[in-house]
Nucleic acid binder design. Sequence first.
DNA 1: GTGCATGCAAAGTCTTTGCAGACTT
DNA 2: AAGTCTGCAAAGACTTTGCATGCAC
Lengths: 143, 143
Amino acid sequence: MANISKVTAKAGAASCAATRNTRQRALVLEAVRSLHNHPTSADVYDAVREKHPSISRATVYRNLNVLTEQGEVLHIPVAGSADRYDFRCDCHYHAICRECGVVYDVEMPSEDLLSSVRDTHGFLIEGFDIIFNGLCPDCVDGA
Amino acid sequence: MANISKVTAKAGAASCAATRNTRQRALVLEAVRSLHNHPTSADVYDAVREKHPSISRATVYRNLNVLTEQGEVLHIPVAGSADRYDFRCDCHYHAICRECGVVYDVEMPSEDLLSSVRDTHGFLIEGFDIIFNGLCPDCVDGA
DNA sequence: GTGCATGCAAAGTCTTTGCAGACTT
DNA sequence: AAGTCTGCAAAGACTTTGCATGCAC
């Protein structure tokens, strides 16, 4: 998520809730870190099930939420389809291909974007979610 | 939706499908045009039901989709919650308040944003969806 | 032992779709 | 008359939640 407050929060500490090192949590984190294609929760679920077949979807969702709060993974909300997760937690953005659905990284300084905002009608902008769309290199060539 | 291709499409013609002027379609369009608070489909449904109580949600959804394709209304996909619709179809963006959920308009030239993109890793960007978040004027004062 | 975490099932939210009948053109 | 549109109900996609048991600390 390209959220400024989120990034700031990551620099500081997460919440104070006691958190336990369960096998499921470790496997979910490992899955996100090994899947470098911006996996959906379903992708993570499938990956974890290979090593731990009895895990439930609820556990995957719960752990993805916990790990997001702790700043261990990046949550990418996607309008119109399943949210995705990213092992890269530094500030960057994403582009999704309208043909094949693959997600690419996009580098862009958020300051530039915020400074070009002309009129917020009094709204205090703290951050933003952005998803670029278009064609990935493969689909550009294929077309 | 802050989508460049969508805006371009609006300038041209919609699809060639024959479309009929039904009372329900007219009421859905009228509702979006009269509700200036970026209504959700549920808001539109409620508004239309006051004049036409027997309308179904499916009809509202179908007509919102048709009107979006025709460029009569603007569809605002929102990750994590219900999509919204806008009577303003010209190029502009939106900010949603993290406290009360109200949606504000934001003016920003899309060229500025696209020119500040540093590296797309070969991805051809055609457009983008963006939602700013923060606090609306009322919630800033209230806090 | 405490209480967070898990697994299962059910529910929740938002949206689309199949179908038969109704209405626009 | 022809074909789109409607309303109803059901399903679909994605995610969360209640509850009893289990495991980390």
